[in-house]
Amino acid sequence: MSLSNLIKNWSTLRVKRPYEDQYKDKDYKWAMVIDLDTCTGCNACTTACYAENNLPVVGKEFFGKGQAMHWIRIERYWGENEEMEGKFPDRGAQFLPMLCQQCEAAPCEVVCPVGATHHTPDGLNSQVYNRCVGSRYCSANCPYKVRYFNWWQYPERAWPNPLEQQLNPDVTVRSKGVMEKCTFCVQRLTEAKNRARTEGRRVADGEVTTACAQACPTSAITFGNLADDKSEVARIWARQKVDLAKDKQDKEEDLRGYRIFEDLRTYPSIVYMERVRNFEA
């Protein structure tokens, strides 16, 4: 950022983020809604993400060490009051797709020693692989544990010749020693934004979506532009009375939108829909 740029945007740089109506006059603020009541835990989103974003399949051994590279993973929880017979009860599992929450006040961004992770103007938490030196501080500071580190040079192993032909040319193949994370399929967003700009309009609702949302068989994932009041995502956020700049949402019987670890004041961009049953927590 040049000095002239800094002076020009001084007023926006000096305020605490996020603030109310931060994206009101902006064109884009990408956000997501995940309906946990329709999620069946089928892992289609994970598979789609692997295909779209050139994620290497690390194999059983590395998976066991916790080195899997799934940008979106299905977390499984067993209900508290379910009867636990044996190790895996037949029913009662709850699923929660966990991906980068694209926090507005992201804990990962402030700790990067080399400025490899930034906040983009459209509300994404970006990761630039070229700048990353692999300190892994961001991952340590992420409360959601959705940043993944390339411990090994995976590409040769994951896509032996001729499998490299299946790689998505719009996404970098990451090499050893860099951190990576969900990008909200930024390659699709950029393309849609460019197309819309050429045609002199804003990206329409439903024109662009992430790979996970596209693959979801029960349409549990909704993706869209929160800055556009008429988009599906913005309407759900409004209906569930979730506000981007709040760190505590209204808890009513018939509301079911919540964000994970809101009280940490990370201000995530993803709303999960499930009735909050434990009001004490």
Partner: peptide, 12 residues
Amino acid sequence: SNGPNDCWQCHK
């Protein structure tokens, strides 16, 4: 106006 100054506009 300036060109975009956002990492992800050009870096993928």
